[in-house]
Amino acid sequence: MDIGKAVLGILDEVLQLGPRAADLSADSPLLGAIPELDSMAVVAVLTLVEERFGVTIEDDEIDGAVFASLATLTHFIEAKMAA
């Protein structure tokens, strides 16, 4: 499955990106660039990631770098799934 696409779907669902979703590339910045992505939105994203991909995420694994871009978030999930 295409994890990047699934991650974009989760962001769209939580943040209601609408047409902005189509403009997001792998390297587009997330944290700080999308105003809706606040701490509660991050919690919602993490919850959906855990439920959809069957992983458990500890909060000390999460920092700003994970949510820097679509690519960093996707890479983080791929690494969790491989672990």
């Binding site: 991050v42 919690v43 993490l46 919850t47």
Partner: peptide
Amino acid sequence: LLLQQLLRLKVAGNLFAAEPGGASTR
């Protein structure tokens, strides 16, 4: 997973805190 998600709501505000302050889920 249930407990982790409940606890994360409790610590949401601390997730990206510049200074480590509030308690973590751990």
